[in-house]
Simulated scan of single mutants.
Amino acid sequence: MTLNVIQAFSIVLLILALGEFVSTKTKAFVPSVFVSAVLFLVGYWTILPADIVTQSSFAKPIVYLSMYLLLTHMGTLMNLKELLGQWRTVLIALSGIAGICLMTLTIGKLFFGWHTVVAATPPLTGGVVASILMSTAAADRGLTAVAVLATAMYVMQGFFGYPITAFMLKKEAKRLVDKYRNGEVAAVNNPASSVEAEDSRFRIFSPLPAKYQTTYAILLKLGLVAMLAVAVAPFLHLNQFVVCLLFGVIGREIGFLEEKALVKANAFGFLMTILMGYIFAGLSKATPAMLAQIVVPLFGIIVLGIFGMAVVSMLLGKLFGYTKEMAFSVAMTSLYGFPADYILTIESAKSMTKTEAEREYVLDEMLPKMLVGGFTTVTIASVIIAGIFVKLI
């Protein structure tokens, strides 16, 4: 079925809006990404064309543009000291992946076989790159069902990750709100002032006068920083999206980029919409026949992996002073990555807070950890693990 661009766009936005509506009504108990994923999946199985997201104009060029700008913008939400202070988060995220591998390669191997767990584990620890590497390797060896499993693992893992993370983040947000309301963090009543004081030590660009902080000017500066990040990434041997995040932090520190740049440019919401629509396009590959063929190993490996992730990440998190909810949430980012980690955190904070000050405090505590966790697992670790596992299949 072929739709015109505004018809396809409206259908995609209707599904995303329904997800938000359910999330708001349930106070994030049912996260919007989960609802939208279910609606897209049912739609693909019934009336929606498989390429409806592409028909809505959310194709790869604009999606990649959105990713570059959004991740550079995310860097403007954190200061350098904050980013460097997240080394515990990185270790907790990596420990969660270690827990996944430990369970799948031992108990999982006994139940489902070596080739199956080797192909399914890297996609479970991260994103689309790991899925492509493992499915291609399995297909090249004539393991068709295993290749399908690697793809389905990437597509379906979010159905477990979204609700579990939402539940954990809501508990963590409630703890932080109670702490704030009890006056335990009264000293942190104006985080913006401390940030500005810290920025001033590195600032080499004078602040752009407010009247010149237009949509065009802010987007231009974000584009220039992202362009530089993409050019430098190969020399740093880092993923270009990770470098965009890092350069966003640096751009804000030196005063070239404004804090919350895309929000000030009034462009954040639309770019997030583009990205979310494109992510759900991957569900068009999860046909009922595919799922029926590999349903037992698919869900079995996911359950084993999550159990291993929970145990190891919570233990290490306790040593580092993280609550079990925060540590598990950081590790769970491997099941979806960005932007779902951002959206789940925002929704949980909104559902548990009443004032802007409370919300800012909760987000300051949770969002950097979730973003860093997502980049550690999905963008970096999963690709490394896939590179190792592809030789084992």
Rank of each mutant, 00 (worst) to 15 (best):
K318C: 14
I380V: 09
K285C: 09
F247H: 11
G305F: 01
Y336V: 13
G317D: 10
P339T: 01
V383M: 06
K260A: 15
V378Y: 00
I279G: 14
V330N: 05
A327F: 01
M272A: 11
M314P: 05
D364R: 04
T345G: 01
E356Y: 15
I279E: 04
I380L: 11
S313K: 08
G337W: 00
A386K: 03
G317F: 03
L271E: 04
A340Y: 12
L298G: 02
V249Q: 00
L275T: 14
M290P: 04
M276P: 10
P368F: 01
A381M: 04
V249E: 06
S329F: 00
A310G: 09
L262N: 00
V383Y: 07
Q293A: 14
V249R: 00
F241W: 15
E259C: 14
G317Y: 07
G317P: 08
E258F: 03
Y322M: 11
V243L: 12
T333A: 05
L257R: 02
C244Q: 08
A292W: 15
L245Y: 02
P368G: 01
G305A: 05
M326K: 13
M309T: 06
K354N: 13
I346H: 09
L291M: 13
L304E: 06
G373D: 02
I301Y: 01
L319E: 15
M276S: 10
Y361E: 06
L246E: 10
G255V: 06
I274M: 10
T273G: 12
F307R: 05
E358D: 03
Q293E: 13
K354L: 12
F256C: 05
M309R: 09
I306F: 05
L371H: 06
E253R: 12
L262T: 04
K354S: 12
G337H: 02
I274C: 06
E325A: 13
G373F: 03
N266T: 11
E259G: 15
V311G: 01
M352S: 14
Y336E: 14
F268V: 10
S348R: 01
A331I: 08
V378N: 06
K260T: 11
L283C: 09
L275Q: 13
A327E: 05
A331N: 00
Q240L: 15
I384T: 02
E259D: 15
D341T: 10
L367K: 03
F256G: 05
L245N: 08
G321K: 07
F247W: 02
T333G: 13
E347R: 03
N266K: 09
A261E: 03
V296Q: 04
V311S: 00
A281T: 09
T323S: 14
A381E: 05
V296T: 12
Y342K: 12
L283Q: 10
K318W: 15
R252M: 10
K260L: 15
A340K: 06
D364P: 11
K350G: 10
E365Y: 10
A292N: 15
S351P: 00
K318P: 11
V295A: 09
A386C: 02
V378I: 07
F299K: 12
T355S: 10
F280N: 06
A281E: 13
I279V: 12
A349C: 08
V303A: 12
V311L: 08
T345R: 05
